[in-house]
Design a binder for these strands. Structure first.
Ligand SMILES: [Zn+2]
Ligand SMILES: [Zn+2]
Ligand SMILES: [Zn+2]
Ligand SMILES: [Zn+2]
Lengths: 133, 133
DNA sequence: CAATTCATGTTACACAATAACATATCAGGC
DNA sequence: GCCTGATATGTTATTGTGTAACATGAATTG
């Protein structure tokens, strides 16, 4: 399942596995707590691993939550824009991408001479299953 | 200039003015420091004012910065989606909205049965003036 | 085997946000 | 005027999030 993950180190592996096990986003300190038994003692151990995992594209940061999720589409990450629909009730996160939005943001940036380095798109709300029907 | 701002209280006014004076986003603690002479002593005084200002739509929160800006378009805030292009070099923030993106996000949500409560769109990068040409 | 680079461990600290509780101010209703 | 509920404010302490600084260990390379 886990495809060609670029040779993670021990700590990176531990953090990545913790995020993969979880069924929702985890804060760095929650990860730290989960890895106490594996020898983790300080936040930096988590943050350093997360930095690498983010660079590898294996993990995403949810800015509006100060939390992290394992990437749901380890494949085609050619997309500059990755969006997240975050349910505030159950905590589930739905990762998506949309070429139209991507193009639109790109042309907006182009028009203004703005060179985007990172794009954040996050929807906070209530998912179908949590919604009173 | 400042249109029909809905009767701000003293603290709300102070915080709003601080954000309006600034030429970029301010963190809550920066605001606190700027308002020491006006009697501000604790973060809560800032956060409480910000909560109201956010509710009034006079201020926006930049999730990827943990910072706040005065709204640049106090008028037509009928838009659900408000985007920000944030220059990581000079700190300038460009507020924009785009109906195409808005529609696209809305139909995405609709299709999934997701009910969005808040939408975050933030571009981090380099603005035209800061870009080596 | 150095020399370099990268991963790791540890302590202390800075920055962001809230909890809990007390006090003050103001608007109606009587 | 006086009570009362609602909102705004002040203050202290605490929790949560993220880094700085420095030391050590392991791997790579010439
Ligand atoms: Zn992904
Ligand atoms: Zn849900
Ligand atoms: Zn605005
Ligand atoms: Zn700039």
């Amino acid at each position: 399942m886990t495809a060609e993950t670029p040779d993670l180190t021990k700590n990176q592996r531990l953090v990545f596995d913790a995020l993969s096990r979880a069924d929702g986003p985890l804060s760095a300190y929650t990860i730290l707590d989960q890895l106490r038994d594996d020898g983790f003692r300080a936040p930096l151990q988590v943050y350093r691993a997360l930095d690498k995992l983010l660079a590898f594209g294996l993990v995403h940061r949810l800015e509006s939550l100060n939390a992290f999720v394992a990437c749901a589409h380890p494949h085609c990450h050619r997309h500059a824009m990755i969006g997240f629909a975050i349910c505030e009730t159950c905590g589930q996160v739905d990762e998506f991408s949309d070429e139209v939005i991507e193009d639109r943001l790109a042309s907006f940036a182009q028009a203004r001479g703005f060179v985007p380095a990172k794009t954040t798109v996050e929807l906070r709300g209530q998912c179908a299953r949590c919604r009173p029907n």
